[in-house]
């Protein structure tokens, strides 16, 4: 099971687009991390409020549930860019050259198919909860404090749309590699051997150990 990989860069248009998208993806991932941090602070606030001041945070559960989509989806394109979503690469890991790019292209096209469908479906899910004519535009509200749910539903199609952009770039990258028979194409995650991967994992901890 491989998690990480490397992405090569050069001065081509594709690579420039790849690098142009990274700051947005990374910023969204950072927002997701910050949402985890907020979640942690919320719990401390809720516990101490209840324990020491008899004033629990109203709607604590509602707030957590509203925060979870921000945590779970915002970083999705960033992880895809670096090839971080888990897969089993025993078979593709053994392939080289055009055969490898063909398999990568097929699976990336399939992912695109799924995500485009999910942009549609998750937008519909958002749309059912959203009504401009209502107070707080809300047509779906939380159980405890009546928080509108549409903002956290909107996160999903937004994050998936950025992922669509990322997938289009990767399809371009793999397609180009397939047609030109490239060895080390840019803008796509290249499989690291499991040894390289372990070394990268170890190096990540180097400064801190």
């Amino acid at each position: 099971m491989a998690g990480s990989s490397t992405v090569l860069e050069d001065s081509s248009l594709l690579s420039r687009l790849d690098r142009a998208l990274v700051p947005l993806e990374r910023f969204m991932a950072l927002l997701s991390g910050l949402a985890v941090f907020v979640l942690m602070c919320l719990a401390v606030y809720s516990v101490s409020g209840r324990k020491f001041f008899n004033s629990p945070l109203p709607g604590y559960v509602d707030l957590i549930e509203a925060a979870m989509p921000f945590i779970a989806f915002l970083g999705i394109a960033y992880v895809q860019r670096n090839g971080g979503h888990i897969r089993m690469d025993i078979v593709v890991g053994a392939l080289k050259g055009r055969a490898l790019w063909l398999f990568e292209l097929i699976s990336t096209l399939l992912i695109l198919l799924l995500i485009v469908m999910l942009v549609w479906g998750s937008w519909a899910h958002f749309d059912r909860s959203f009504d401009l004519s209502r107070p707080m535009w809300s047509r779906d509200s939380s159980i405890d404090i009546g928080l509108p749910i549409w903002p956290s539903k909107l996160v999903v199609p937004v994050a998936f749309s950025v992922l669509v952009l990322r997938l289009l770039l990767q399809i371009w990258g793999f397609g180009r590699a397939l047609v030109l028979g490239l060895d080390r194409p840019v803008a796509v995650p290249l499989i690291q051997s499991i040894e390289e991967q372990a070394r990268a994992e170890a190096e990540a901890l180097e400064e801190d150990a």
């Binding site: 779970a72 992880v79 888990i86």
Partner: peptide, 14 residues
């Protein structure tokens, strides 16, 4: 935080 986000997103996507 970014590392946390990456691992979290990976798990949640699955």
């Amino acid at each position: 935080l970014i590392e946390t986000a990456k691992l979290t997103v990976m798990i949640f996507t699955i």
